[in-house]
């Protein structure tokens, strides 16, 4: 039974289209009674049979009132989901073996409060959120990254049994977004020193991070450089420049070819990843050479380089 159910479900999930934004409508909201709902239906039936047998008119009224309440619960549960909008937000990429946060936002445009549960089979994760009328909420679904490379967001069940707990309204959504699993960093001390291409720059020290002046924002400036206070106060986008901006100085070469060909792909990538992180930590400039790409020093280099490592696939 269970494997069959699982197979049915995975077949069903594969049929679902991937969507970055989804708005729940009657075409995709399903309604089923909960165990409590079924119990109450049985009670209504029992009261009805009693009313039939003893010809108790008021008991008919009670039985039908319970049934009407159940019907109303169907509508109310449906209303919990109907019109709810879900959209993906950029997920947090992280390293292999760690748990990534798949970010989503729930937007409630209706004028009523909603009680929404999210459930993903992967990781048995359940999230409950209470959306006030006209409110919006960000939710992150944890996802264990068990291999390198892109991971699709898990298929989500959005459900609610509010307000009575009699009827369960649910819907499936296959978010069109991925999180990347970077290689797991492996320490690699020796190689790290070798890769340094000595330049004629001064040795690095605390003073190098000293603030020099403000300049107009240029594409490629990192968020760290942006003068946020200026933006807030004057509404002008400006970048901070430092006394010794690491430009034209020593560049570490982190190359695929640094390792013997016998070493397997994952280990190579893991070591490269560790060295990359070391460079980032020390604020050193580096260049990543992979068989298919080269990542030059640039703004947002860390993410790009890590992504390149994550996506690296070699014709073997």
């Amino acid at each position: 039974m269970l494997p069959f159910r699982k197979r049915l479900r995975s077949w069903w999930w594969r049929r679902l289209p991937r969507e970055a934004v989804c708005r729940l409508s009657q075409r995709r909201i399903y309604l089923l009674p909960t165990r409590f709902g079924l119990l109450l239906l049985a009670v209504a039936a029992a009261v009805w049979v009693g009313a039939l047998n003893y010809a108790v008119s008021l008991a008919y009224g009670l039985a039908f009132w319970i049934i009407s309440l159940l019907l109303l619960a169907v509508l109310m549960a449906y209303r919990q989901l109907a019109g709810l909008q879900l959209q993906v937000e950029a997920g947090e990429n992280t390293f292999l073996g760690q748990v990534a946060n798949c970010r989503l936002s729930l937007i409630n445009q209706a004028g009523v409060e909603r009680q929404i549960h999210l459930w993903a089979e992967e990781g048995e994760c359940a999230v409950h959120c209470q959306l006030p009328a006209g409110g919006q909420q960000s939710v992150s679904i944890p996802l264990l990254l068990n291999r390198r490379g892109p991971h699709a967001y898990p298929v989500l069940q959005i459900w609610s049994t509010a307000p009575f707990g009699l009827i369960r309204a649910f819907s499936w959504w296959r978010p069109d977004a991925t999180v990347l699993a970077y290689p797991h960093p492996l320490p690699d001390r020796i190689r790290h020193a070798d890769g340094l291409q000595t330049g004629k720059g001064r040795s690095r020290g605390e003073g190098e991070e000293d603030f020099s002046h403000l300049a107009e924002y240029q594409a490629g400036d990192t968020p760290r450089q942006i003068a946020w206070s200026m933006l807030a106060r004057r509404d002008v986008l400006a970048s901070k420049r430092f006394v010794s901006q690491p430009r034209g100085h020593a560049v570490h070469e982190l190359a695929w070819q640094d390792y013997p060909a016998a070493l397997d792909v994952e280990t190579r990538l893991s070591r490269l990843c560790w060295r990359l992180l070391q460079c980032e930590k020390a604020g050193q400039r580096y260049r990543v050479r992979l068989p298919d790409t080269v990542i030059e020093p640039q703004a947002g280099q860390r993410e790009r380089a890590l992504a390149a490592l994550a996506n690296c696939s070699l014709p073997s």
Binding site: L39, V43, A51, V56, L62
Partner: peptide, 20 residues
């Protein structure tokens, strides 16, 4: 507690057998 509630719904029919 849900079972208790369901029992309560059923029990509310009992007084009707005695008086309407």
């Amino acid at each position: 507690w849900q079972v208790v509630l369901a029992l309560g719904f059923f029990l509310s029919a009992i007084p009707l057998l005695f008086d309407q």
